[in-house]
């Protein structure tokens, strides 16, 4: 196994030992409780609401892990000085950063995979609770595999959030990193508004500035296709692939910047 692999496995092990995967219990509990409650309250809309809620929960739980583990990935090593022993081993600083990133990506992957499996199990159960006539009226089957496209983009969004958190954690405190990461995530979800800013302002400078920010800031709204898949609206595979590619390029740039900053740091 490569150095990056060893570091990544250790990050994953830390997540497991620090009980990060307990969030899955929260996710499962939420789904089961809400499914039960919906069964008592609504008629016919249960599956659609579960789909909405499940996809939103996967994104939210994933976001919490990406931000709150991502911001501590480097900071904790430096603050606790465990990095002294680690960097004295035959390892380059870029390998350390990439190992940390891959480790958290692996943790997120396992989380999202388990949440997805639980989500489909709940939906499959709900599917058995309705007669064929009701099921025929749904825009898509309860266990519609099309939802995997939305989950795939949620995962790529989480990878991008992780890269942002890791980037900030190479030079700032956890609090500041968290604030900046969440701030970028919020702005990124309203990014499309920046593109058409000239429609609402008269100043050409402000319009150009907004257009510039549109291209520089991460466009998180592009990853959100939850509404489309829940309503069985077509989402071309090419859109999923190009959005994933956008995430990968953005991540690569962020990781390169993180490595550049981290490689010059003094660990006092």
């Amino acid at each position: 196994m490569s150095v990056i692999g060893h570091v990544a496995v250790n990050v994953f092990k830390e997540s497991v030992r620090d009980k990060v995967l307990y969030n899955l219990v929260g996710f499962a509990t939420l789904l089961i409780v809400v499914s039960y409650l919906l069964g008592q309250l609504t008629a016919g809309q249960d599956v659609k609401i579960i789909k909405d809620l499940g996809l939103a929960a996967i994104a939210t739980f994933g976001l919490l892990i990406a931000v709150f583990i991502g911001i501590g990935l480097v900071w904790k090593e430096v603050e606790r000085r465990s990095i002294y022993s680690l960097l004295s081993k035959p390892m380059r600083r870029d390998e350390f950063i990439l190992g940390k990133y891959v480790g958290l990506a692996l943790t997120l992957f396992v989380n999202v995979a388990i949440m997805t499996a639980a989500f489909y199990v709940v939906l499959a159960y709900m599917d058995t609770q309705f007669p064929d006539a009701v099921r025929a009226s749904w825009p898509a089957p309860a266990t519609d595999p099309g939802m995997l496209r939305a989950i795939a983009l949620i995962f790529f969004e989480l990878l991008l959030v992780t890269a942002i958190a890791l980037f900030f954690s190479t030079f700032s405190s956890p609090f500041l990193s968290a604030a900046l990461t969440v701030g970028l995530w919020v702005i990124g979800h309203f990014n499309r508004d920046l593109r058409n800013f000239e429609a609402v302002v008269k100043s050409r400078t402000a319009a150009y500035l907004a257009r510039g920010l549109y291209y520089v800031l991460p466009n998180f709204s592009a990853f959100d296709i939850k509404t489309q898949v829940v309503h069985a609206l077509p989402v071309p595979a090419s859109y999923v692939v190009s959005t994933a590619a956008y995430a990968l390029v953005y991540m690569a740039l962020l990781l390169a910047a993180a490595v550049a900053i981290f490689s010059r740091r003094d660990f006092k």
Partner: peptide, 30 residues
């Protein structure tokens, strides 16, 4: 670095690992 060893002053190691796991991790890096 492959030929060096280093003990920092008041070292901290990952406290969620066992002594065996920590050394296995470091040995893996070599």
């Amino acid at each position: 670095k492959r030929r060096l060893g280093y003990l920092a002053e008041n070292p901290y190691f990952y406290d969620y690992l066992t002594a065996e796991e920590l050394l296995q991790y470091f040995a893996g890096l070599f």
